[in-house]
Design a protein around this nucleic acid. Structure first.
Lengths: 230, 230
DNA sequence: CCAAAAGTGTTCGGAATACACCCATGA
DNA sequence: TCATGGGTGTATTCCGAACACTTTTGG
């Protein structure tokens, strides 16, 4: 490549946007922030950042995660590159988008609210800055596929959860209702959840048993090409 | 963004690589070219190109397709962005890789050979320049998934094909053997192939019937959230 | 006449689906 | 006492998997 070509081609910026999914026990939600400056000032957008040429994209994603969730580890995966030529008025920007799953507990909700961020319901996403609607549609499809084949739902739930909560999560993500009995059969068959001695006495009259995810078992099953299918 | 920040961030290049799958009737193959200049001069690599800031990536992919296959339309899909910081000695380059499926007929094989390109068997991929091995591994996984759920195999076969050819394609892509009777049952059940009056008298003693893909039927089924599953 | 590939049905087991009632408890 | 959500079992259907022999024909 000549230095002239170098001048032409090395003239693009990388950005990354994060579709952060959280589950409040009832609904799946996605985190949005308000854009602080032009273009699209005041508009809702996904948490995003530019990536410097010497930095890895994953690093920037991790920084976004830390900033917005204060969670050290979670499930994160690249969606794809969004690269329409007109995306950003400042110049050509490639947006390599990611999604992540977090436990959306009271603490996190409070923190986000204090900062003026919003967790918006999965099915109620408004019009967004840039091409973020397209990114979110893509992320929803990916989540649907993943949730069907891998027990990633457990990243979204608190450590101890009831079967009803788990079912509600699946129903929201897959956008269909399921039969309670069949759901239990399937979940218990998977051998991936452990019954605890605890109950959730708050959210219902008859206290529901609390379960937890069996991470060890999952590791073992994953190794032998495990197939979970909803 | 200040102009100083602009100088820092807008300093990256976009490239794209194409994993071009072809099926020769027996094996799945991927197209490789030989690198003409440093770095990695003489090494095998995927067909690739830089993307100028004013150009869409799809356009560059289309140009690659045209150059290497002379096919006007085929199945093409983005894989993801490969973006390791050290990828390319010239500077930070984001590789937004794609894969595509083509009918690998005699004409194309001859053309490629004349140009010094190689169609290498799916399971025999050697060490490649850059991170192209990683790209290919990812592409294979994607193909596996797609082939299971959508009849994209038809992009790889000639217009008229035998059931045996189709089965061979599935077996290669999914890397497992299948039962002839069960395979036929499934394929015919899908309602997506049409029997023709023709037979393939060349490749076997007892001439095999030729079939073709029912594109109209596929359109209609796709609309109602069709699910094909291997 | 025989090697090589084409073509064809049945059985079995496991998973998905559909479906309805009793239980515990806080208000 | 009753409204609310928790918890349980069975019958049916459908799909995938396993499995072996006959047919055609070029050499």
């Amino acid at each position: 490549m000549t230095s002239e070509e170098k001048n032409i081609y090395f003239n693009v910026a990388i950005a990354t946007s994060l579709v952060l999914f959280g589950f409040d026990g009832e609904n799946l939600r996605i985190l949005f922030i308000r854009k602080k400056n032009e273009p699209f000032k005041g508009g809702l957008m996904l948490p995003s950042g530019y990536v410097s040429p010497s930095e890895s994209i994953e690093k920037v994603v991790d920084k976004l995660m830390e900033k917005y969730t204060q969670v050290s580890y979670s499930f994160t995966e690249q969606l794809k590159a969004f690269s329409k030529v007109f995306r950003n008025p400042l110049g050509r920007v490639i947006n390599v988008a990611y999604y992540a799953l977090v436990k959306l507990d009271e603490d996190l909700l409070t923190l986000s609210k204090k900062r003026g961020e919003e967790w918006i319901e999965y099915s109620q996403i408004p019009d967004l800055a840039f091409d973020h609607n397209e990114v979110i549609d893509y992320a929803k499809e990916r989540l649907k596929r993943r949730v069907k084949r891998r027990p990633i739902g457990f990243y979204l739930l608190p450590k101890y959860f009831t079967i009803a909560q788990l079912q509600k999560l699946y129903e929201t993500a897959l956008n269909r209702e399921m039969d309670k009995r069949n759901f239990r059969k399937k979940i218990f068959n998977s051998q991936l959840i452990i019954e605890t001695e605890m109950v959730d006495a708050l959210s219902s009259r008859k206290a529901a048993k609390l379960y937890m995810f069996d991470a060890d078992k999952y590791q073992k099953l994953s190794l032998k090409g495990y197939d979970f299918l909803f």
